[in-house]
């Protein structure tokens, strides 16, 4: 029975990501246009909202190009390996008190462990392309994702300390409103590190279009390319949902269905902030990125942990 449910939830989370990506791309086009004083899509549907319905068939019918020198089997499979873990990570997120698709005792650790599988998949796609730019992009992505995993996990750890549990449902039910100001620095660290984890601007050094074409997925086209983009949007949705649950108490102060609606609103706000950051800040250099992670974010996350640890005995 568990397997069947797992399968169903897998399908549901893939559908959520695909739908979210379609809406997200439209929303991002609108947000970026707003920031750059343009209109964005406006011809198809109200406010251009049906634009993606025109774009999806285009992606589906594009030729699937596999380079002659590529390691074909690995090249074809890698996009699936990139997308799969993101869809898997969605299922441990609790949407309301007592309700998560999969109730896992170490769900928070599981959610944080998922990018490690993605690192492998990105390295494989970079390697299989047999292309210098892809390889450089893959190496950059790995260095970045492994490094930013540390401040990200440390930031979440402060909430785990407060809740005293790694089970996402326990964290949600134990959540108190004053945790949000107490762990706000943690949220900012989580937010920055998550942007780096999903390789989005301004931390899109692995795929920097002006120097590496598209980095590790430069040789992909059509639906395989779209899998990489869906994985990026999927991790944006998953990270925003998880952040809204862990740092902002999910549907707090509402409960039930209204709480789920509020959770979605919080998630959309965080996603909009992610887009805002992308279209506002320039891309840093590789060494700036690394020193920011190790010299600023990690010590700050440790400091946040110390503060929470100091408050904890007085509760």
């Amino acid at each position: 029975m568990t397997l069947l449910w797992g399968f169903l939830w897998g399908v549901a989370s893939v559908a959520t990501i695909a739908g979210g990506a379609i809406l997200g791309v439209w929303w991002e086009r609108k947000v970026s246009a707003r920031i750059q004083m343009r209109y964005g899509p406006q011809q198809i549907g109200p406010y251009g909202s049906l634009q993606m319905i025109a774009d999806v068939p285009k992606l589906l019918f594009k030729e699937d190009i596999v380079p002659d020198l590529a390691d074909k089997a690995v090249f074809k499979l890698a996009p699936l390996f990139v997308f799969g873990p993101v869809a898997t990570s969605m299922v441990v997120i609790p949407f309301a008190a007592g309700w998560a698709p999969v109730d896992m005792s170490v769900g928070i650790l599981f959610f944080l462990a998922v990018p490690s599988i993605e690192v492998i998949a990105i390295l494989l796609s970079a390697w299989a392309s047999h292309n210098t730019l892809s390889t450089i992009g893959g190496l950059r992505a790995t260095a970045q994702m492994i490094s930013y995993e540390i401040p990200r996990s440390l930031a979440v750890l402060s909430v785990v300390l407060l809740a005293g549990s790694l089970r996402p449902l326990d964290v949600l039910s134990a959540w108190q409103w004053w945790w949000a100001p107490l762990t706000f620095v943690g949220f900012v660290i989580y937010f920055i590190a998550s942007i780096a984890e999903m390789n989005r601007g301004p931390f899109d050094i692995p795929e920097a279009d002006s120097e590496l074409v598209a980095g590790y997925f430069a040789d992909y086209s059509g639906m395989r390319w779209a899998s990489f983009m869906m994985a990026e949007y999927g991790s944006m949705i998953a990270a925003s949902l998880f952040g809204a649950v862990v740092f902002f108490g999910g549907g707090w102060p509402l409960s039930g269905a209204a709480g789920v609606v509020l959770l979605v609103i919080k998630t959309v706000l965080i996603m909009t902030a992610v887009m805002w950051v992308k279209w506002t800040f320039p891309r840093p250099r590789q060494d700036q990125l690394m020193s920011f992670c190790w010299k600023v974010l990690t010590p700050l996350a440790l400091l946040q942990l110390v503060i929470v640890g100091a408050v904890l005995p007085w509760l």
Binding site: V106, L109, A113, S116, I117, I120, W127, I146
Partner: peptide, 24 residues
């Protein structure tokens, strides 16, 4: 579940990446 997650975290995310890096 903890052991499974730790397995993915440490072996897939750590050791395997180290090996791919070494090969590259």
């Amino acid at each position: 579940a903890f052991l499974a997650t730790a397995q993915v975290f440490v072996y897939v995310g750590g050791v395997l990446v180290l090996m791919i890096f070494a090969i590259m």
